[in-house]
């Protein structure tokens, strides 16, 4: 027979334990936090001390007055009017507006493409399903930067100009730009109510195609997460395929999709900072030029970080609102 635990019970455990003062249930957490806090504090103080000392030596102590000096550089393409005689802050603002422009259009495009491809995964057509899978697997495993360079240098810059340009109904693709509306060839130059530069177009295409693949996965996952029983229940009630999708499946899928979309949207916004690859001037490239001219590294980096943080927060706030809407419908 096994030796039983209670065989021990005759030997008392209660050897008095001496308590070191620090091993106190309520004290220890504070001690740990104090130690960590002190460590971080010392590190930060050390870094900041160095920063101040080094900046003083270089004559670059934090100041913002240089923002009002004339920039002296041009930006090829701006929505907010800008020229070299305007101050730096105006240049940075123009860059920010350019960034916002590509981000907003990119979000719309990527959502459309991603939703379409994500839903294609549920098509009855095997070829379509396969192509959707191929698209996602292909795009997600190639770096965004490489794709942007590809779109710009290999696709858009290779477009012919003038009469040889690629002409589609209502759209002309030429090396000189993308023309939308009713493009007309005037003196071998295309003219249209809406024109996009190839730089902008390639950045937008790259971002849409890249983020679209991730959104497709999010959408597919969201729809797949709706239990099969929901489809069956709807069908047994006599609802058609389209109605089932619209009224039963999509509302439930959205509860999974919307939170995941948030991080994809933010990563698109951050991805737009690779605009330099396409020769498009966004906030980051203006900031880089500004730094090269003024040497104001700390200020420029602070502006950059703050701007992207604000963009992220705005996106998150919007998506949280949307999320609340989607989740509320349930109750």
């Amino acid at each position: 027979m096994t030796r039983l635990p209670q065989g021990l019970a005759t030997t008392p455990l209660a050897t008095p334990l001496t308590t070191p003062w620090w091993r106190h249930r309520r004290l220890l957490p504070w001690l740990v936090q104090g130690a960590v806090g002190l460590l971080v504090l010392v590190l930060v103080a050390f870094l900041l001390g160095n920063l101040v000392r080094n900046l003083t030596n270089a004559g670059l102590l934090l100041t913002w007055s240089w923002l009002h000096n004339p920039a002296g550089f041009e930006i090829a393409e701006t929505t907010l009017p800008f020229n070299a005689s305007m101050p730096y802050w105006r240049g940075l603002l123009a860059g920010l507006v350019n960034t916002l422009q590509v981000v907003v259009l990119g979000l719309i495009g990527a959502t459309a493409l991603g939703t379409a491809t994500g839903m294609a995964a549920f098509s009855s057509n095997g070829l379509l399903r396969g192509l959707a899978r191929l698209y996602v697997d292909l795009i997600r495993n190639i770096p965004l930067l490489l794709q942007l360079l590809f779109w710009y240098f290999v696709v858009f810059l290779a477009l012919p100009n003038g009469a040889a340009a690629v002409q589609l109904p209502g759209l002309v693709l030429a090396k000189s730009g993308l023309y939308l509306g009713q493009p007309q060839l005037v003196n071998d130059v295309w003219q249209a109510p809406l024109r996009m530069s190839v730089e902008f177009a390639s950045l937008l295409t790259g971002l849409v195609v890249y983020t679209g693949a991730f959104i497709a996965e999010v959408v597919r996952g969201g729809v797949a997460a709706v239990p099969q029983g929901q489809w069956e229940a709807a069908r047994s009630l006599g609802l058609g395929q389209a109605l089932t999708l619209r009224r039963i499946v999509v509302p439930q899928a959205l509860r999974v999709i919307v939170p995941a979309l948030n991080s994809q949207y933010i990563s698109l916004a951050k991805g737009s900072s690779l605009a330099v690859a396409c020769g498009y001037t966004d906030l980051y490239s203006v900031a880089e030029t500004t730094l090269n001219q003024t040497g104001r590294a700390v200020e420029v980096v602070l502006i950059l970080l703050a701007s992207y943080l604000v963009i992220d927060l705005v996106i998150s706030a919007l998506m949280n609102g949307l999320n609340r809407l989607v989740q509320l419908r349930e109750r």
């Binding site: 160095n50 933010i266 951050k270 900072s273 730094l291 590294a297 992220d312």
Partner: peptide, 23 residues
């Protein structure tokens, strides 16, 4: 970290790290 694009952090590394540490 997750709020900042990597390129701005690399930019920070190249341009500010030198100031943060003793020569």
């Amino acid at each position: 970290i997750r709020g900042a694009p990597l390129i701005t952090l690399l930019f920070l590394g190249q341009n500010i790290l030198g100031f943060l540490l003793p020569g």
